[in-house]
């Protein structure tokens, strides 16, 4: 199973760039492609500036929550779920605290808070990781969890539906729950299965 041991990101990144070049040749949009390279660079800096603000804010708020013991309360509440998904972290308090804050932020739909809190959890998981270059099983599970949208109220979607004149903007909520729940389950299952295959 050598092919999954090589980082996929390298291939996908290269593919996107080469594919973009080829499609620009086909569709004749080379000029747009050329200018997108430069605007993309400054967009990245803009994104980092936006992230800088929210990362500082949420790391600061989290620090208060941690020092005051609030994190541990959340972690206790979510402990059964986290123990089930991350059996190896049973006795790792710091990592469990950070993961439970990230889950809480995701469920409440605080997207811009979930990312900084998730990064904090990743730092904790990296501390427990034996090979600092390669992702651990727990990291993979955690990231896949964050790529599925766990949220109670899809507020952005509802707002856009309302703006477009939907009769009942929230009527899709059960479908959203089922779809994101299934995608979460399948993602986690895939990580567990792949992890087993790679051990062999």
């Amino acid at each position: 199973m050598l092919f999954i041991k090589v980082s996929m990101i390298n291939y996908i990144w290269a593919f996107i760039i080469v594919f973009s070049f080829i499609s620009a040749v086909i569709t004749g949009s080379m000029q747009e492609l050329s200018s997108s390279v430069f605007s993309g660079g400054s967009d990245a800096v803009e994104l980092c500036l936006k992230l800088l603000g929210s990362l500082c804010l949420w790391n600061g708020v989290m620090n208060i929550a941690e020092k005051s013991g609030l994190c541990e309360k959340f972690a206790k509440l979510l402990s059964p779920v986290i123990n089930f998904i991350f059996p190896k972290l049973k006795n790792e308090k710091a990592a469990k605290n950070a993961i439970s804050m990230n889950i809480t932020a995701n469920l409440l739909g605080m997207g811009n808070a979930a990312t900084p809190l998730g990064i904090k959890a990743m730092k904790n998981l990296q501390g427990l990781n034996s090979n600092k270059e390669a992702a651990s099983q727990e990291m993979m599970t955690f990231v896949v969890m964050n790529t599925a949208a766990l949220r109670i109220i899809p507020s952005t979607v509802a707002a856009l539906r309302e703006a477009a004149g939907a009769a009942e903007p929230m009527d899709i909520i059960f479908c959203v729950w089922i779809s994101s729940g299934l995608s979460l389950l399948c993602g986690i299952a895939a990580v567990k299965i792949m992890g087993r295959l790679m051990k062999k």
């Binding site: 990064i119 990296q126 992702a135 990291m139 990580v191």
Partner: peptide
């Protein structure tokens, strides 16, 4: 966290 080998994350 400076992880380079992301393993099976993206396909999963």
């Amino acid at each position: 966290v400076g992880i380079k080998k992301t393993g099976a994350v993206l396909p999963c």
